[in-house]
Simulated scan of single mutants.
Amino acid sequence: MKLSILIPLYNKEKYIERCLESLLAQDLSPNDYEIIIVDDGSKDSGPLIAKNYTEKHANIRLIGQENQGPSAARNRCLEAAKGDYVYFLDADDYLVTYVLHTILELALQNELDILEFNTKQIVEGSIPEKSSQNHQDVSVKILDGMSYVSEHGFKNEAWRYIIKKKKLVATGIRFMEGTLFEDAIFTASIFLKANKLAKVNLDVHRYAVVENSIVTSKDPAHNLKFIHGMVTAVEHFHELIKGLDGSHVNYHKVVKQLKSRQQAFGLALIIRTIKYRLLSTEDFKKILMKLTMFEAYPINYRKGVVGSGMKRVFSKTIFIPFFNNKTFLLLVLKLLRLLPA
C-alpha cells in the first residue's frame, strides 16, 4: 500500500460525498491507496453515506468512535493506516482529480519525508474539477526541515502535504488531543524533524470555509477553548525553539519564523478575548503573564506579525502600542464585561 488518506468525520453529511468522489477520481489503482474514515460520533447521516461507499469500494474503511475531537480521530486513522505515506484530509474539503499519482511518485522517487503542494479556497457549492496542469517534468528542491522552514516558512494545516508514515513512527509525533491549534503544533513539529522535505508547484487541494466550522464558530465554549488552545500553541512553539540546533546555518531565520508565529497567536488570542469577553480580568492577566514567559508578549512589530508599508507604520504607532498596554487592555475588558452580551 503506497498511500493512506485519513479523514476525521464529524457532522459533515453535506460534504463527505464530494470529498470521497474526488478521491475516487484519481489516477491511482485502488490497490495503491486506501481511504480511512473515522466517524467521531457524528449526529447526522455522514457515517451512513460513508458506509455506503465502503460497501462499493474495497479500499475505503469506516471506523466509529465516541466523540473525542478531530485530533483523536486523526490519531485513530493513523493507527489503522497501512500506506507508505499518509495524508490528512478534512471531510469538507476535496482534491482536484487526477493529481495523486504525480504527488505520490515524486515522494517515492525522491524518498521524501514530506511533500507539500498548493491549495485554493473555494466557494460553497463548488464541485471537484479535473486537473488542467502539465504534470510532465515537475521537479522539486529537496531540503532538510530547518532549511525548508527558513526558505518557505510553513502554514498550519496538515492537509497541505503528505508525510512518510515511518517518519511519524520514528519521531512519535501525533496530533495533540484535547486542544485546538493542533495542526500548527503538529506541522511545525514534523517539519523541523524532517530530513528530506520538498514543495511542488502543483494545484491539488481545495479548502472550503463552512458555517459552524472550528474557525467560524461563535459558540462561547468553543471560543474559550480557542483562546486556551492558542496559549498551548505558544507554549509548544517556545519548546520547539529551545530544541533547535543552534549550529544550523539557518538557525536564526527559523527562530524568527517560529517567534513570528508565536506572536501572531498571542495577538489573535488578545483580540478574541476582547471581542468575546469570555475571560475574567484575573484570568486574562494570568494568560498575559504566560505569554510573557513564553516570549509571545509584548507584541514585537519587528517579528513580522503585522505586514509592511503603511500597515506597518499604523501598527507600530497605534495598533501594537494599544495591545502592549496591559493596564489599558485589562481596563477595556473590565468595562466591556459590564455591558450586556
Rank of each mutant, 00 (worst) to 15 (best):
P321T: 10
N324L: 08
F322S: 01
S315A: 15
K316L: 08
S308T: 13
T317D: 01
R337N: 15
L333E: 07
K326D: 00
L339I: 11
L329W: 13
G309Q: 07
V306Y: 03
F314A: 02
K311A: 07
F322Q: 00
N324V: 04
L335E: 13
L339Y: 11
P321C: 06
S308V: 13
G307V: 10
R337K: 15
F319V: 10
F328M: 10
F323E: 02
F314D: 01
A341T: 12
L331M: 11
K316R: 14
A341V: 05
L331R: 14
L339A: 14
F319H: 14
P340E: 07
F323W: 12
L335P: 01
L333W: 10
F319K: 14
L338Q: 15
R337Q: 15
N325L: 02
L329S: 09
K334A: 15
L338I: 08
N325R: 04
L333G: 01
G309L: 11
M310H: 06
N325A: 02
A341S: 14
I320K: 02
L329K: 12
I320T: 14
L335C: 03
K334R: 14
L330C: 06
P340G: 10
G307S: 05
P340V: 06
G309K: 11
T327K: 13
R312G: 00
V306P: 01
P340A: 07
L329A: 07
S308Y: 04
F328C: 00
F323I: 03
L330I: 14
L336P: 03
L333C: 06
L339K: 15
T327L: 07
V305L: 12
P321S: 05
N324E: 04
L330M: 11
F319I: 12
V332G: 03
V313D: 12
L330E: 09
L339H: 09
G309I: 09
R337L: 14
K334T: 09
S308L: 03
G307P: 06
G307W: 06
L331G: 01
K316F: 01
L333F: 10
L333N: 08
F319A: 04
I320L: 12
L331I: 06
F323M: 02
V306R: 03
R312Y: 13
G307H: 03
L329G: 06
L339R: 15
F322Y: 15
K334C: 03
L336I: 04
F314G: 00
K334E: 14
